[in-house]
């Protein structure tokens, strides 16, 4: 009985000594394979990024060709006297654009980011844009900033920027529009 016990014990020891040597070889091989696959994955990610750009451009062209494209942007200068919660925009009382802001987006806008709000399709000629920005002023009181303006669409893409800007003299904010 004791002899059997000893044989078994020595067998287990032999297996456990042999295991690490075998493991080191296979681990190295696995590490090389993992690294190769990781490089391949990185290269695919890079290609997807390039493709993503192509798709983005194509979709832009398909959705709104340059002749009718009008891009609406939204920005916030300083933002001390007004914090927007939402914005509602209509062009010619149609094509309503509504957007609710998250804290992260407001923080990005305060850091100088410009939000691409929407791409519109506008025919040639004059159009009326109406915008209402809802939010709170510096004292936490609900406020609405309203704007109505006429725009002219020519055969080139139209860039429209709606900007909430602080008026430090009046200690208030105003909604402004620029177009290029």
């Amino acid at each position: 009985m004791r002899a059997t016990y000893l044989i078994l014990l020595s067998l287990i020891s032999a297996i456990s000594f042999a295991q690490p040597v075998q493991d080191t070889g296979s681990e190295q091989k696995a590490a090389v394979q993992a690294s190769q696959l990781s490089t391949k994955a990185a290269s695919i990610k890079q290609s997807v990024l390039d493709l993503n750009r192509d798709l983005y451009q194509l979709e832009e062209e398909l959705l709104s060709p340059a002749t009718t494209r009008a891009a609406v942007y939204f920005s916030l200068a300083y933002g001390q006297y007004f914090e927007p919660y939402s914005i509602n925009i209509t062009v010619d009382d149609k094509q309503p654009i509504q957007y609710l802001y998250t804290e992260r987006q407001i923080s990005a806008l305060r850091d100088g980011a410009v939000q691409p709000l929407s791409n519109l399709n506008l025919g040639p000629g004059l159009h009326t844009i109406k915008a209402i920005a809802k939010g709170v002023d510096g004292n936490g009181i609900k406020r609405e900033l309203i704007l109505e303006e006429r725009l002219e669409k020519l055969d080139q893409p139209l860039y429209i920027e709606l900007k909430i800007q602080d008026n430090k003299k009046l200690k208030t904010a105003e909604l402004l529009i620029s177009q290029w």
Binding site: A71, Y73, S75, R104, Q105, S107, A108, L109, D111, G112, A113, V114, Q115, P116, Y159, E161, S178, W180
Partner: peptide, 17 residues
């Protein structure tokens, strides 16, 4: 001005993840 808008748009996407 258009360049400023495009730059601002990049920051917007970057800062919002």
């Amino acid at each position: 001005e258009i360049l400023r808008l495009q730059k601002g748009e990049y920051y917007y996407h970057y800062l919002t993840g």
